[in-house]
Amino acid sequence: MDSHSSLEIDSAAYEHFLSLWELGKFEGQRLGQAFYNHFRLHRLSDQTPLQGLYEADGKKALKVIGEVIQIK
């Protein structure tokens, strides 16, 4: 398994986040920024795998999320 396997989010929590996003609950934020803040990813000591996520929006953010986070 790759080095990012420790980054996991429950699928129900991820779906909840996406629902909130669709409802416009993160007004003024990019998708990656909203994801980063919602899941409090600033608490992780190793930010390396998350590079580019905060700045990403739309499909690019979804791609970064898919590459570094396992949805279980």
Rank of each mutant, 00 (worst) to 15 (best):
21 W>C: 02
30 R>A: 14
13 A>T: 03
18 L>P: 00
55 E>I: 03
13 A>E: 14
23 L>C: 02
50 L>C: 08
26 F>W: 06
28 G>H: 01
72 K>C: 08
68 V>G: 01
56 A>R: 06
49 P>E: 06
51 Q>R: 14
51 Q>K: 13
67 E>D: 13
35 F>W: 07
17 F>Q: 07
38 H>F: 15
57 D>C: 04
14 Y>E: 07
42 H>P: 00
51 Q>C: 04
51 Q>V: 11
67 E>P: 00
64 V>F: 01
8 E>S: 03
32 G>S: 12
16 H>R: 15
6 S>C: 01
24 G>M: 03
39 F>R: 01
9 I>W: 11
28 G>I: 01
13 A>F: 04
20 L>F: 11
56 A>I: 10
26 F>D: 07
67 E>V: 00
19 S>G: 10
43 R>E: 14
43 R>F: 10
33 Q>H: 08
33 Q>W: 01
40 R>N: 13
37 N>F: 10
32 G>V: 04
65 I>F: 10
68 V>C: 07
15 E>P: 01
1 M>A: 12
4 H>T: 14
32 G>M: 08
23 L>N: 07
63 K>M: 09
55 E>V: 05
57 D>R: 07
66 G>F: 02
51 Q>P: 00
64 V>R: 11
12 A>S: 15
18 L>G: 00
13 A>C: 08
65 I>M: 14
50 L>V: 06
65 I>S: 07
19 S>F: 02
63 K>V: 02
6 S>V: 02
56 A>T: 06
59 K>S: 13
27 E>L: 01
10 D>A: 14
54 Y>T: 04
6 S>G: 11
11 S>G: 02
10 D>E: 15
5 S>K: 09
45 S>D: 09
48 T>H: 10
54 Y>K: 13
19 S>P: 00
57 D>G: 14
52 G>K: 03
23 L>F: 03
41 L>Q: 11
10 D>M: 04
72 K>R: 13
31 L>S: 05
46 D>H: 07
63 K>E: 14
15 E>W: 01
42 H>S: 14
61 A>E: 08
36 Y>H: 14
57 D>K: 05
32 G>I: 02
45 S>N: 07
22 E>H: 08
3 S>G: 05
4 H>F: 11
56 A>C: 06
42 H>E: 14
23 L>Y: 00
69 I>T: 03
49 P>L: 09
71 I>C: 10
8 E>R: 15
59 K>H: 13
2 D>K: 11
51 Q>T: 10
65 I>G: 06
44 L>E: 12
67 E>S: 06
55 E>K: 11
37 N>Q: 15
13 A>V: 05
42 H>N: 09
4 H>K: 13
18 L>Y: 04
36 Y>T: 08
12 A>F: 11
23 L>W: 01
17 F>N: 09
39 F>Y: 07
12 A>K: 15
42 H>F: 12
54 Y>Q: 07
70 Q>C: 02
5 S>G: 00
57 D>T: 06
56 A>L: 09
42 H>A: 14
25 K>T: 02
72 K>F: 02
62 L>I: 00
55 E>F: 04
9 I>L: 15
19 S>V: 02
22 E>G: 03
54 Y>C: 02
50 L>E: 13
23 L>A: 13
17 F>L: 04
16 H>E: 15
3 S>H: 04
30 R>L: 12
38 H>A: 12
1 M>F: 08
16 H>S: 15
19 S>D: 13
68 V>N: 00
